[in-house]
Every structure is written in structure tokens, then in C-alpha cells.
Nucleic acid binder design. Structure first.
Lengths: 339, 339
DNA sequence: TATTATAGTGCAAAGGTTTGCGCAAAGGTT
DNA sequence: AACCTTTGCGCAAACCTTTGCACTATAATA
């Protein structure tokens, strides 16, 4: 077979049967105007030839590509891939496809991704901001022209743009209280960059959690890192080297918690006897490490599903106001935080 | 702003300047027929209005969507996401986008994914077979109509379809020899399903590796599993319960190796003192577990790149014969296999 | 029988882009 | 003055689909 034969069009069917293209189109759509006999013949041949409507032609005609652009900080983290699966789940039900782009945690690539996806005429975007993103101008065009846009996890402009997040304040409180209940008193927290909502919120939860336990907040126990492994190790070392060492640490996410675990072990401390550790992560890694890591699990699949649902709400009702969906997390207690 | 204003077309520019659509098109493509003055005006306005050619229209016209379909067994494994990054890297350079689908390791979803992606008129497919796939009929249409198709890692029909794999035989030999050099003599292997090329090849390497070390092949030291964690644990238990316990185990992949690690620890054996362990995996997880896992690292990003390169060879030269790219692996020695 | 309703089709436009060809005006050559 | 060449542009077709409208028969009614 040669090139060009790979897809049949209405024209091919029309020529074969000897009717017009419009008749074929109507026959396939069971239009009542078409005689039963023609309809039958057309449908039979279409099935035989494996006809499927050309989405390009449809897209052009209907001005709708049935594509969603998804931008994540990276693809290799379980957290994001799992969320993508959730998005895909809902998208598939609606007959939509998703086009995935990764920002690699840089603003520059995020901007490029927005541009590129818009070029492909996706109908809208579902985005988790990169770690670097403090300026949100690249979303202006979408917001102004009312193109569907949904943020998740790391969000911004929540009054204009729908978003789905977890209750970070509550989650951080849960961790602090869990530490307290298990006898830990010098509870440290390795945070992320200030401009990220997740970092701010967890910090708030950490501090209010301390208060609700009757503990004082010691600023030296709150350290920041840029979410890289290397920086997290430095932050951990900083905590461990304090004159009065913390007896419990919680890290803002996977990478940070694992890095902390490595550094704690490297310095010869035992987990949880000397230093307890809790992560903020998803279900997979935590059970692989030793000791198994207590952590906040995100409902990642659900986050994706909710984001997709919000997206379709935008598509179907462009005038709808921005909504924020807040999902709950669960503290899964494992060995790393229980003496 | 209202819907429909979100993208400008040649028509918009033409109307504004007062020339025909074709003139605008040519001006933007720097066609010599167009006067410098008109060209300048058109290009200026196009830039101002943020014009980008509509890919749907182009796709329809050129019968080329600049889209590649990628099917992987799952998205949440680092191995695949990293390969996807490699594919993306090359695709981006060529101005192509990729559409990702996951088979969830089932044949049924794989077939569906092929269908769906073909419906969207991707120009071709890059595929890693699902674990279940023994029948390859769903690729017939692609092969017969000469639609670009490339397999990676888990491959089939290598005489008709280009593919990229790692040298599995060599890798398994390396592991066996490494065990031998470090004083292990009862070397066991947890394999996968027989119909997968990767399983077969690694088994071959395991056996020939044993021979090259002057060790005898004991059939009871070769057990199979279906690549699930649960099954791998069962397989590990089976090995550990042998009257003559193996002193070294290698698992066919990540999941298996981690499961084995858990089970070995659970039974109270020390790694590597009682049982050494080597995995077949990529760089990330291995350093997180304790003890750090010796393993074969795949050049995942490169696998993706090579697959994409093969793909474009198919696109640019549809008559080219199928080629097989074989990449080398590296044995990264960590604590789990050195006494 | 003449008129009208109805069933069953086809035409053409629209969506956006490229490109072969035609056409007009201007300039150049005998 | 008559012809040819060049320059610069527009028309229309093609890619594929849907759909309002027009059209042709045939059947039904007056």
C-alpha cells in the first residue's frame, strides 16, 4: 500500500457507492432524510474501510480540537504522573486527548510550553506552576480571552482561575500534632521557596500546629531550601548542627524528605530514635525506603480528576466563576516517626 | 474579549491590510513575488497580532499532523517517563509534539491506545509493549500501510519494525560475573514472563554468564514472576526457602528488586552479608533504598532519543529497512552486592 | 389533470493554509 | 508602434467535514 491510503475519507466512500459526500456524511450520522437503503450501504462500507472522521477537519469546522494542554514541573515524579493519569481518566470519558509538556521547574520553559500548546490549538490548559514562577503574565492571554485554564497544587490568581489544591495548612498541622503525640518536642520544618503557595500554607500549618500543641515556635527550626536534593541536604545538615538538635523533622516534599533521610543517616543518627522524619509525598516511595517513611499522602489521581472536571466546567460554561477545590490529605503513619 | 477572537488567521491580516489571503501567506513565507513593502507590512502586523499558523489547517493540507503517538506500559515509572523525555527532546527539535497513552500493562488498553492514536491522525507510533502482549495483530495496519512505527525495550517483529533495546544479554552477564567476582556462588535470578524479549534475553545472559564463570546452572535458582510486587515477593520467598539458599539474587527490574529487598529483610536476612541483591533499574530509586542497590542502569533518556531518531528516519524515508539500535548498559556497584 | 406536499439527494460554503496559474500593468526591446 | 518580459498580485483548488438550502422526482391531494 502507498502513502495516502492510510486513512479513508467521506469522499472515498462517496465515490465507491456513487452518492455525494453530504449523503455519506448524513448517512453516517443517521440523518432521517437519507433512505434506509443508502444508509445501510454507507454504514457497511464505512465499517469495512475502518472510516473514522478526520479530527483535523472537525477541529477546523467546529473550532474545537478536543485537546487539553497539561503543563507539569516534571514528568519523572510519581506525583505528577499520577495526577496526569487522573486527568486522562476524565478526559478520555469526554473524548478529549491531553498534550503533556514539562516545564522542568523553570519559568522559561513554562512560558515556552504555554506558547507551544496554544500554537497547537489546545482548547485550554491545566497547569502546575514551576518552582521558579513568580510572574504570571504568560497566562494573561488565556485569562483575557477566556480560554479554559485550571491550576493545581501550585496555584496563583485563584480569584480568576479555578484550581485544585490540598488542604496544606491542615496537613502540616496533622504532622506537627502527630510528632507531639509521639513525644517529640523540638520539631523542625524544611520549607520551600516563599512565593509558592504550598510552601506558605504548610508553614502556616506548621506554626499553628505547634501553637495548638502548646509548643513555642523557634525560628531556627524553620529552614528553607530550593527543593533540590542538594539544597535539602544542606538544610538538613544545618538543622542537625544546631546546638540544640531537633528531634523531629518534616520535609516539604519527597525529594526533601529523602535527602533529609540520607543526611541524617550519614551523620550517624538513627531514625526515628534520634531524629524522627515525616515527608509530604505520595504512596509509592515511602514504603521503599528504610525505615518506611511516615507521610502525608496526596490523593493524586483525584487531584487530576478534579482538575479535569473544573476544566470541562470552563469549556461548557465559559462564564462560570473561578472555583477552588480543596481536597483532604491523609497522614499515613509508618516507622520513621514512631519510637 | 469573546470566543473566536483567540486566534488570528491569514484572513484577518489580509482584511486589515487590504490584500488577498494568498499574498499574506506568501509575504509571511518571504516569497520573492511579493513586494518588499507589502511583505514588511504583513510581517509587522502578523507579529503584532501574534499570528501563528493553524496546525489543523496545515495538517489537513499537508496530510501531516506533526504528532507522534507514544504508548508506554505506564506513566508512573521513572523508566518510562525518562524515556518519554528523551523522545520529547528530539521531537521538539523537529517541531513535533507527542501524544502519550498508557496501556496499563494490558493488551486491551494497548489495542485501544493504538486505535485512538490513529484516530487522532498521529503520523506514527513509538511503543513499548505491554506485559500481556503476545499477539501483535493490532500493529498490522500500521505495518501494512507503512505508517512509521518504532518499538523500544519490549519489542517484537524486529525484522519489520525498527526498535531500540539495550544489550540485555550482556547486562545479565555483567551481573552474574560481578556476583562471582565478589565471592557469590549460588546466584539466583527472578525472571519475568517468557514471551517478553527482555526476559528471554536476560535469562540467556544469566545462564551464559554462569557458564563463563565456570558455575553450573541450577534450574531451581531461576524463578519467574509476572512483574508485580506481590508475585515478586512470592518468588523471592520461594528462593529463600530452598534447602540450599542462594547467596545472591538478581531481579529483572525495579519492582522485582525492591520487592525482593523487602522480603529478604522481612525474613531477617542481611543484605549483602546473607544475600546479595542486584536490580535492573534506572538511577533514581536505587540510591534511596537501604542498602543502596547495585544495578544495571539503562540509558533511558538516550533510549527515548534513539527511538525518536528511528521514528524520523521512518518519516523521512518510508522505504528504509527496519534497524535495531542496541544500547549499552552500565553496572553501577553499590552496597547491596559487595560484602 | 393540475397542483402541492414529501422524500431523498446534491451543491456550496465555511473553517485556514499553500500553491499553480492567470492576469494586469509597467518596463524594455526591436 | 508592436511585441515581449518582468513584477506583483489575486483566484481557485485541495485537504475533510457538516449543514442550510435548492433541487428533482414521486406520491398524494383537490
Amino acid at each position: 500500500m502507498q502513502k495516502g491510503k492510510s486513512h479513508v475519507s467521506l469522499k472515498d466512500i462517496a465515490r465507491e457507492i456513487g452518492v455525494s459526500i453530504s449523503t455519506v456524511s448524513r448517512a453516517l450520522n443517521n440523518h432521517p432524510d437519507i433512505s434506509p437503503e443508502v444508509t445501510r450501504k454507507v454504514q457497511k462500507l464505512a465499517a469495512e474501510l475502518n472510516y473514522t472522521p478526520n479530527p483535523l477537519a472537525m477541529g477546523l469546522l467546529k473550532q474545537a480540537t478536543r485537546m487539553i494542554g497539561v503543563i507539569v514541573p516534571d514528568l519523572v515524579t510519581h506525583f505528577y504522573s499520577s495526577i496526569i493519569s487522573g486527568i486522562e481518566d476524565i478526559a478520555e470519558q469526554k473524548g478529549y486527548y491531553i498534550l503533556i509538556a514539562s516545564s522542568n521547574e523553570t519559568l522559561q520553559k513554562e512560558i515556552k510550553a504555554v506558547e507551544n500548546l496554544m500554537k497547537t490549538r489546545v482548547e485550554g490548559l491545566i497547569v502546575c506552576l514551576s518552582q521558579e514562577t513568580k510572574n504570571y503574565d504568560h497566562f494573561n492571554r488565556l485569562i483575557n480571552t477566556n480560554i479554559p485554564l485550571v491550576f493545581f497544587d501550585r496555584v496563583c490568581r485563584t480569584d480568576e482561575v479555578s484550581s485544585v489544591v490540598v488542604d496544606n495548612v491542615d496537613a502540616a498541622q496533622k504532622i506537627t500534632r502527630h510528632f507531639y503525640k509521639n513525644g517529640f518536642r523540638r520539631i523542625a520544618y524544611i520549607a520551600g521557596p516563599d512565593h509558592l503557595n504550598i510552601s506558605q500554607e504548610r508553614t502556616r500549618g506548621y506554626i499553628s500546629g505547634l501553637k495548638s500543641c502548646g509548643l513555642e515556635f523557634h525560628p531556627e527550626l524553620l529552614v528553607k531550601c530550593n527543593l533540590s536534593s542538594k539544597d535539602a541536604i544542606k538544610a538538613t545538615a544545618q538543622l542537625l548542627n544546631l546546638p540544640e538538635r531537633p528531634d523531629a523533622i518534616f520535609g516539604i516534599n519527597d525529594t526533601v524528605a529523602f535527602a533529609a533521610m540520607k543526611e541524617i543517616k550519614r551523620q550517624g543518627f538513627r531514625i526515628p530514635e534520634d531524629v524522627a522524619l515525616v515527608g509530604f509525598t505520595d504512596e509509592f516511595h515511602s514504603t521503599v525506603v528504610d525505615p518506611a517513611l511516615t507521610s502525608i499522602t496526596h490523593p493524586t489521581f483525584e487531584i487530576g480528576q478534579e482538575a479535569a472536571r473544573l476544566f470541562f466546567r470552563c469549556v461548557e460554561n465559559p462564564e462560570a466563576k473561578a472555583t477552588q477545590v480543596i481536597l483532604n490529605t491523609k497522614l499515613v503513619i509508618r516507622k520513621s516517626s514512631v519510637k
